[in-house]
Nucleic acid binder design. Structure first.
Lengths: 338, 338
DNA sequence: TTCGGGAGCTATACCGGTTTATCAAACCCT
DNA sequence: AGGGTTTGATAAACCGGTATAGCTCCCGAA
């Protein structure tokens, strides 16, 4: 027999469909003996719930969604997403909940997807990444009443659940490390200013500058691309009093920056120290290998999944979980200034 | 009213549920006038099908799956998957079919996932990547009668549908290009021998060697990691009569190889030419930028999606689509031998 | 002895679509 | 005009589960 249904099991066990449903879902209504018997038969017949049937009856889909709104080309290079995804899945797999992934170009499309998913009842909740300042997705999700968890930034007044690491602290660690080496001219090649984490990092640099006696600590925003990372680096290094250290908001930009430095005859770490905010194989492949801020992205994803499941189970209680602090991995690209 | 159902539409239009269903699915059974009216009302009420209900009734889920069986750490760096995914989704979005993505550690788990997906009716079909020699997944899918399309390799005698590019031809192009530059000692740092495409590339090199008068053209297999790529390169360059050109089976390994060369004082492209099989931002970020074989990965994915939909619609007819040939992008890492 | 109440189970409605059997009216042809 | 086919629609079954009302025992308390 192909794909047994609970009706088949019921027949074989000599009980009603209802009893089988009770037994399989571990809820009261059947005796322990009957439950045992039903479970054994189900096992034996290799029964598996029909997801659609269950979804229709119980109005939960056992599936969560994740939309990534970035142009595809920036996406691939960053191990960030791959690790995050794996982590999310490991968090979901325990409950055998599946993940819908969608890559779109912009935030408007992303919101559209949420609307569609909601009206088609395709997901029980979603995971958000790349929170921007005054993020339109928050209100949209609120209105849709779709459970959600934000990765990498507190949910804001909207009070979405969130999982975050302390960007500010991480950035302070980097700057203090460089200052301790003796650097006073530190530049920050940041990402898009619309991302909240970019803002937090910029603020951290600005706040720390006077305390550490930094002469100048400009944060220059980019679109996260290697091209702008390179261009910004070129501009910085062409200045009369160029910085002796540059902090990049992503590994890709740091690598691009390293290339520019080499091309301009600026030796790393002799004339210039480089730190990447975000670690990956990329930073390790370079010569010199780049000093970088490492986060446990996998764990990040896992926790996000866990929190999302909590929120789905109990939408009233917003969870706000802080993950382990990022760690600075010192490699060959940093040294005291000449 | 929250989330209208077809019953609501039927009532408002003064027709039966059946009529509404016919109208919404564009099938005969209603007059053109009635159809128009129903469609307008549905539009107006912002009706969207309940995916579970549809799945239950029509026994199709409008969802396809893709499992990637690779350790997460190799995954992120390769833009390959990100582009592929975007492509797949663009191919699916036309029919508004969603994608389930799963990253697992090994092929056994992957097969388990297929079984689970099938018995839970979670997907209508799947997309396979990284075909190995005597791939166990083919038989498994055959047995499950789950529609599938293989990316990057002919489906084999199992006759799964497939979408592929000509690896052999691509490799020949590379080797011929290097030979034309004057290289006679060419080495090939390959990927895992269990992948079919690795085999095809190795065979291409071996076959071309005598014709092009290559002195030696060894193919050395690795696990695709940067570590083994580097180690293999080191071994090759330490030889008495070291190769004047190396072809790498992935961009990551090529970058690692470049690092080793620089470290050993072997200048690129002066003493050594480097070609990467697979292009990405990585190859462009290097100094010198790497000559690489570029495939239109996005299009690859899009076509895979299209073919899968065809196969789902008509499982009898296996499709075998060949995509555009990869193109060699010459950059700074190749030159005539010293 | 009767009644209340809980445990254990059945029967059945229900979720929101699709599909099929059925049917009335219109149309078509000699 | 009568019989056959086509068209446009309906009512009801169905998909595979979940949720619930209700029934039957059985036990203990009044």
């Amino acid at each position: 027999m192909a794909r047994p249904t609970i009706a088949d099991i019921a027949q074989r066990a000599g009980v009603s469909k209802g009893a089988v449903s009770f037994a399989l879902n571990g809820r009261p209504g059947v005796s322990e003996a009957t439950r045992e018997r039903i479970l054994r038969i189900a096992e034996q017949m290799a029964w598996r719930p029909h997801s659609a049937a269950r979804a229709l009856g119980a109005s939960r889909v056992d599936s969560v969604g994740m939309v990534i709104a970035r142009p595809a080309r920036t996406l691939g290079v960053e191990p960030f997403f791959a690790h995050l995804l794996s982590g999310v899945q490991s968090g979901l797999s325990a409950e055998s909940i599946s993940l819908q992934l969608l890559i779109v170009e912009d935030t408007e499309t992303e919101v559209e997807v949420y609307k569609r998913w909601t009206s088609e009842h395709r997901v029980d909740g979603v995971i958000l990444v790349d929170l921007t300042v005054r993020d339109p997705r928050i209100d949209a999700l609120k209105e849709l009443e779709l459970p959600a968890v934000v990765i990498g930034g507190r949910g804001g007044k909207g009070q979405l659940a969130s999982v975050w690491a302390d960007d500010r602290d991480a950035m302070l660690t980097i700057v203090e490390y460089l200052a301790a080496l003796g650097h006073r001219r530190i530049a920050h090649v940041a990402g898009t200013p619309i991302f909240q984490h970019t803002q937090r990092r910029i603020r951290a640099v600005r706040d720390a500058a006077p305390r550490l006696g930094l002469v100048d600590a400009p944060s220059l925003t980019t679109d996260f691309s290697d091209a702008e990372g390179a261009a910004t680096t070129r501009r910085l290094l062409a200045q009369a009093d160029r910085p002796t250290a540059i902090v990049y908001d992503s590994d890709v930009m740091a690598v691009a920056g390293l290339g520019v430095a080499m091309e301009m005859g600026v030796s790393v770490p002799g004339d210039l120290s480089i730190v990447a905010f975000d670690d990956s194989i990329l930073t390790q492949l370079m010569h010199p290998a780049l000093t970088a801020m490492s986060r446990d992205t996998f764990d990040f994803g896992r926790q996000a999944a866990e929190v999302l499941l909590e929120v789905i189970a109990n939408p009233e209680v917003p969870v706000n979980r802080r993950t382990a602090d990022p760690v600075l991995t010192v490699r060959e690209s940093t040294a005291p200034p000449a």
